[in-house]
């Protein structure tokens, strides 16, 4: 697995030098969000791309992380790092406990159950006004600090969040190239064969659901401390759909694909300001077109298309082996 490590190091270097080439704080600010969404997309991809289990409620875990951090620090003055840990732990416990009944479900029932869970949580964000501030949001969330060092600029936050995102990527890559990763892929490709070979399919699904939830919750905490203000709309159904689109665009089962998907869907609407509000149409189109014409996502689809094109130019349309 030397190649994986090399790929990761290369990517980490690119990430760490990017700020030197980015002029102006605005783009850097957007890149901070790319980092957060990278974590979220990787979290969903572990579940959907590897284990083949859909979740349309990821925004809930993201939101719970953000609100735990926000409420504990802004309203109760807790240390942000402790709050982040508590948030991740609470979401971990929730996803683990709920995971048992939820992951007994398959296909569309699973999709609907996670969707329902997401909406219930969203409604609670809106309705528990005393705690969350309701629809008008929660402000006064402090920045993260280490000693006297405060993460209060886009540049500092960039390194903070990408540090976390890189760690998430590394752990995910390690996981997918391990015994557990193979078992997850096995569940996806033939659940009955996986069981016959001794994979405790249900427990493993629950575990990966939990990991996915915890990772999303940490992303939520980071979001809260970076933006310093949170409101329910950042954690609604559309966000879950956006995450789904990111994973599909990048490619199911490809960790770096998720990075690409997160980057594209975060950068595009920002670069094309006219998209405002209408980005949801683009998501819809992308979901349909990608699933129909490039089911492997960009990461696999573009090389395949290039190879096919090359083959056509060269050999007059001969079949090209992948």
């Amino acid at each position: 697995m030397k190649r994986e490590l090399l790929k990761f190091l290369l990517f980490a270097i690119v990430v760490s030098v990017v700020p030197a080439f980015v002029s102006g704080g605005y783009l850097l600010n957007v890149l901070v969000f790319v980092g957060i969404f990278t974590m979220l997309a990787v979290a969903l991809n572990l579940l959907l791309g590897f284990a083949g289990q859909i979740s349309l409620g990821q925004a809930a875990f993201y939101g719970l992380g953000a609100y735990m951090s926000g409420v504990l620090t802004a309203s109760h003055g807790m240390n942000p790092w402790v709050a982040m840990l508590i948030g991740a732990g609470a979401v971990g416990l929730l996803t683990f406990v709920l995971g048992f009944p939820i992951l007994r479900l398959k296909g569309h029932s699973l999709a609907m159950a996670t969707l329902g869970l997401g909406i219930i949580v969203y409604i609670f964000f809106n309705e528990t006004v005393d705690v969350t501030g309701g629809p008008s949001g929660l402000s006064g969330i402090p920045n993260l600090t280490v000693g006297s060092f405060v993460f209060d600029s886009d540049l500092k936050n960039y390194y903070l969040i990408w540090g976390f995102a890189l760690l998430a990527i590394l752990l995910a890559v390690n996981l997918t190239n391990s015994r557990i990763g193979r078992a997850l892929k096995a569940i996806h490709q033939s659940e009955v064969a996986a069981r016959v070979l001794g994979v405790d399919v249900h427990l493993l699904k629950v575990e990966i659901f939990t990991i996915s939830g915890v990772l999303s919750a940490i992303a939520g905490s980071l979001y809260a401390h970076t933006v310093m203000f949170i409101s329910p709309t950042s954690f609604g159904f559309n966000v879950s759909i956006e995450l789904l689109t990111m994973v599909i665009i990048g490619g199911l089962g490809s960790i770096y694909g998720s990075v690409l998907g997160a980057a594209l869907l975060t950068l595009l609407p920002e670069l094309l300001r006219t998209f405002q509000d209408y980005d949801i149409i683009v998501y819809g189109l992308l979901l349909i077109l990608m699933t129909m014409f490039m089911p492997g996502g960009l990461v696999r689809g573009i090389p395949d298309a290039a190879v096919a094109l090359y083959g056509k130019l060269k050999g007059g349309g001969a079949d090209v082996e992948r």
Partner: peptide
């Protein structure tokens, strides 16, 4: 899962 994703795509496309 593909069909779920396609119909979700269709849903948000129509809505959009």
């Amino acid at each position: 899962i593909t069909l779920i994703i396609i119909t979700i795509g269709g849903s948000i496309l129509i809505r959009g």
